[in-house]
Amino acid sequence: MKKITSGGLTLLTYVIAILFFFPILWIFITGFKTESEAINIPPSLFFKPSLENFQIVWEAGIGGFFANSVFVTLASTVIALLLGVPAAYALALLKVKHKDDILFWIISTRFLPIAGIIIPLYLLFKNVNLLDSLLALILLYAGMNIPLIIWMMRSFFNDVSFEIIEATQVDGASGLQAFFQVVLLLVRPGLVSTALLSMVFAWNEFFFAVSLSYTNAATLPVYMASYMTQEGLFWAKMSAAASISILPVIILGWFTQRQLVRGLTMGAVKG
């Protein structure tokens, strides 16, 4: 009896999981259909896959936006880590007055709506001629992810036992040396999770990008949103474009499953 219910539950979970994954699967499949096949009723399951849509969106210039997204994502994550990791280290392991207050104050900024600062940002970037520039987005995404990085890395640093740090100091290593040689190595898995999550957020960000970039610095999400309003509802081409934007997340996620999942569950809290 017990076995039957457990088998039934597994089956039920499988069905729900497939339903859940269906939208993503469907997007991938549709990218390889022609426009007319894509809107066929009933939907065609058997068709001759073609790369035509990918070719069309490529020629329409998706490559440039893809490159923008990659560059902005990587550069902003590096900067955010350089600033955020040391701050997290200080908050976790060094003696700082009002530690908790500082942490609370830093995290709280993560929850605020971007709308609250977008007008001054727009004016600032306009004045220094950085509207529609990759640099503007890099700086903003770095800033956006620093609180997240501080919050996540602090909890990883907290897991490092204090004895290890003391031991390095007895050996005569300075605070900085201890940080680079010992502690950073110990938290490496956590660091990977944190970096991945920061990349995911940068890759998907839309409000900053759509407000502050137009043609030169537009990222993939901005391109997709504008494609939809300008070209109308070409589902097959949209699906191809969407697949291109999902693909890096899937590839990255596949290789770093455990870290990405941990990052998502921890960091989504601060989304």
């Binding site: 979970t13 993503i24 998907n204 969407a242 934007s245 999942v261 569950t265």
Partner: peptide, 30 residues
């Protein structure tokens, strides 16, 4: 459901978590 110690638990969890890694733009299109 997943807590009933099912087979393939981590696969399920990953499938349900996956949409979180997508942009709302892709979700909107889909």
């Amino acid at each position: 459901l997943i807590d009933q110690k099912l087979k393939g638990e981590s696969l399920f969890r990953n499938i349900f978590l996956f949409p979180m890694a997508l942009s709302f733009i892709v979700t909107g299109v889909v």
